[in-house]
Amino acid sequence: MGKYLDAAKAYVTRDAAGLLAGGRYALVHTRSMEFDELRPYVPGDDVRDIDWKASARSGHTLIKQFVSEKHHKILIVADTGRNTAAPTPTGESKSEVAAHIIGAVGLMTLPRSDEIGMVAGDRRGCVDIRLRRGETHVERILHRYVAQTSTNPGASDIVTQLEWVARHYRHPLLIVIVSDEPDISERLRAVLAPLTARHDVLWAMVTDMPAIGTEATGVGYDVADGRTLLGADVMGERVVAAYRRSEEERRRELSELLTAQRIPHARIASSRGIMSALVAMTGVYARAG
């Protein structure tokens, strides 16, 4: 494997491929039919599936039962803007955690030969990597993501990428959004409706280190726009408490919006939390099928 897939592999369990079982059949492309077993014919079965030789030998009408090989088409939609340079609560960079999430999803596709692509970018526009299969292709996606986040990124705006997908991807997909926690806006509300009408959507949100907290001291800055952030020792307990209440309310409203749009979502604070988040999100996705 390439270095980026190798890095992601440390956070993925062996049975990860099974997480994509289930879900809406509209997402699935049937590549072939594979013989499974013979069983007794029941009214309503297709007579073309009757195995006449086996039926003659057994004295009972037997029918061939097939299982289909189903392959998902998965599109990663990722923010590569300046927000990805911020740290998570555990001190990892958000871009590193996001790369591991993308790698984890890529690893899930390999045993089943699922197709995977990526739309990534910032407020200025998008890079569109079309759906293909294979380890080399997944490594290429990761390489492009890392390059985008580390080379003169613009302002983050995941809605720009979502609007691109809504305009250009018409066939049903499983979309996995990888970004931070977006601000609720009319643009976000407007784009989610057509996306969820056509596609299944999961949202992996990489969380920020709190801007202020009881242990924060001194002066920092916001990676998005360079504004100064004062520590808790400067702001005082009342301001810190008000900030925490505001953050809780913002997160509650965002969760309500995504739930209303039937988008399974998870907040991921570190690479070690990736697998449990994927299990939770894909479990909701599979039960919706």
Rank of each mutant, 00 (worst) to 15 (best):
T160K: 00
L173Y: 08
T13D: 13
V67W: 02
K53M: 11
Y25C: 03
R31H: 10
L258K: 01
A280H: 12
Y4E: 03
S150N: 12
D49C: 03
R189Y: 10
V284L: 13
R14F: 03
R244K: 09
I101H: 05
L258W: 09
A86V: 00
V240P: 00
V119N: 02
S95Q: 09
S255E: 13
R14Y: 13
G289K: 11
A85P: 02
R82S: 09
I268K: 01
G2P: 04
T13F: 10
T61E: 04
K53D: 12
A204M: 14
T160R: 02
S270N: 05
Y11E: 10
P43A: 12
M281V: 06
R167E: 15
L254M: 15
H143V: 12
V239D: 08
R112V: 04
V191D: 11
R123Y: 13
M108H: 05
V178P: 09
I63V: 15
R57W: 02
I263K: 06
T84C: 06
I63H: 07
A190Q: 08
V165Q: 05
R140T: 14
L19S: 04
G2V: 06
M108W: 05
A120D: 00
T84A: 11
R227D: 13
R238C: 01
T214R: 13
I158H: 10
Y145S: 09
G44R: 06
A241L: 08
S95F: 13
K70L: 15
V119G: 09
R14H: 12
G283T: 02
K73M: 12
S93D: 04
G220T: 14
A17S: 15
L110P: 06
S68C: 04
P210D: 08
A85C: 04
K53P: 04
V159G: 06
L188N: 04
D49T: 01
M118C: 13
M205E: 05
L110Q: 04
T259I: 01
V119W: 03
L174T: 06
S58K: 07
